[in-house]
Amino acid sequence: AGSTTLRAVGKLQVRLATKTEPKKLEKYLQKLSALPMTADILAETGIRKTVKRLRKHQHVGDFARDLAARWKKLVLVD
């Protein structure tokens, strides 16, 4: 499952970095939220930084902030 999640995170990371349409960004964040994330995947992909960049986004900022905070707890636990 780890390598599958890693690939999925990579694809979503590229999309988050290149797309600007709020509905698409929200969809990608929801998909990321549903993935079985680990501290290793967060470290290897840097996805948390990508998501943190969206914290001030008018439409998806709250979602991005919550997701980044949830992942921060995951990193602190591991």
Rank of each mutant, 00 (worst) to 15 (best):
A1Q: 13
A1T: 13
A1M: 08
G2Y: 08
G2L: 08
G2I: 09
G2P: 11
T4D: 15
T4N: 12
T5Q: 07
T5G: 04
T5D: 12
L6C: 06
L6R: 05
L6A: 07
L6E: 13
L6S: 09
L6H: 07
L6D: 04
L6N: 11
R7V: 14
R7D: 15
R7I: 14
R7L: 14
A8P: 04
A8C: 06
A8K: 05
V9A: 07
V9W: 03
V9M: 04
G10D: 13
K11W: 04
L12M: 08
L12P: 00
L12S: 04
L12D: 05
L12G: 02
L12R: 01
L12W: 06
L12T: 02
L12Y: 07
Q13E: 05
Q13T: 05
Q13L: 09
Q13I: 04
Q13W: 05
Q13D: 02
V14R: 07
V14I: 10
V14L: 09
R15V: 14
R15Q: 15
R15L: 15
R15A: 15
L16F: 06
L16D: 05
L16K: 01
A17L: 09
T18H: 10
T18Y: 10
T18I: 06
T18M: 12
K19S: 15
K19W: 14
K19E: 15
K19T: 15
T20G: 09
T20E: 11
T20P: 11
E21H: 12
E21G: 08
P22K: 04
P22W: 13
P22H: 10
P22C: 07
P22T: 09
K23G: 14
K23Y: 11
K24T: 13
K24V: 10
K24L: 14
K24D: 15
K24N: 13
K24H: 10
K24E: 15
E26D: 06
E26Y: 02
E26G: 05
E26I: 05
K27E: 15
K27G: 12
K27Y: 13
K27L: 12
K27S: 13
Y28W: 12
Y28V: 12
Y28G: 03
Y28S: 07
L29V: 06
L29P: 04
L29S: 01
Q30N: 10
Q30L: 06
K31V: 14
K31W: 09
K31Q: 14
S33C: 06
S33T: 07
S33F: 09
A34R: 06
A34M: 09
A34S: 11
A34K: 09
A34I: 10
L35H: 00
L35M: 09
L35S: 03
P36F: 03
P36G: 02
P36V: 09
P36C: 07
P36H: 09
M37E: 07
M37P: 03
M37C: 02
M37Q: 01
T38P: 02
T38K: 03
T38V: 02
A39H: 07
A39Y: 08
D40E: 13
D40M: 15
D40G: 11
D40Q: 13
D40L: 15
D40P: 06
I41Y: 00
I41W: 01
L42Q: 01
L42S: 02
L42N: 00
A43W: 08
A43C: 09
A43K: 10
A43Y: 08
A43S: 08
A43N: 11
E44W: 11
E44G: 04
E44Y: 04
E44M: 09
E44N: 02
E44T: 07
T45E: 02
T45Y: 02
T45M: 05
G46Y: 00
G46R: 05
G46T: 04
I47N: 00
I47G: 03
I47R: 01
I47M: 00
I47Y: 03
I47D: 01
R48M: 15
R48A: 15
K49C: 13
K49V: 12
T50D: 09
T50F: 11
T50I: 11
T50C: 07
T50P: 03
V51E: 03
V51D: 01
V51F: 01
V51M: 00
K52N: 14
K52G: 08
R53E: 15
R53C: 13
R53V: 11
L54Y: 06
L54Q: 02
L54P: 00
L54S: 01
R55W: 13
R55I: 15
R55L: 12
R55A: 15
K56G: 14
K56V: 11
K56T: 14
K56N: 14
K56S: 14
H57D: 13
H57L: 13
H57V: 11
Q58I: 14
Q58H: 12
H59G: 09
H59W: 14
H59L: 11
H59Y: 09
H59Q: 11
V60K: 04
V60R: 00
G61F: 13
G61D: 02
G61K: 06
G61P: 00
G61M: 00
D62W: 04
D62S: 06
F63V: 06
F63M: 12
A64M: 04
A64Y: 00
R65C: 09
R65N: 11
R65I: 08
R65S: 09
R65F: 02
R65V: 05
R65A: 12
R65E: 08
D66I: 08
D66N: 11
D66M: 08
D66Q: 09
D66Y: 04
D66F: 08
D66V: 09
D66K: 08
L67V: 04
L67M: 10
L67H: 02
L67N: 00
A68P: 02
A68Q: 01
A68N: 05
A68H: 03
A69P: 01
A69E: 13
A69G: 06
R70M: 05
R70D: 04
W71H: 00
W71D: 00
W71K: 00
K72R: 07
K72W: 00
K72E: 11
K72T: 02
K72D: 14
K73H: 07
K73R: 06
L74P: 01
L74Q: 02
L74K: 01
L74I: 08
L74D: 04
V75R: 06
V75N: 04
V75H: 08
V75C: 13
V75E: 14
V75Y: 11
V75I: 12
V75K: 05
L76D: 12
L76I: 10
L76N: 11
L76C: 12
L76R: 10
L76S: 11
L76K: 08
L76M: 11
L76V: 13
V77A: 12
V77R: 10
V77N: 11
V77M: 09
D78H: 05
D78L: 07
D78I: 05
D78F: 03
D78A: 08
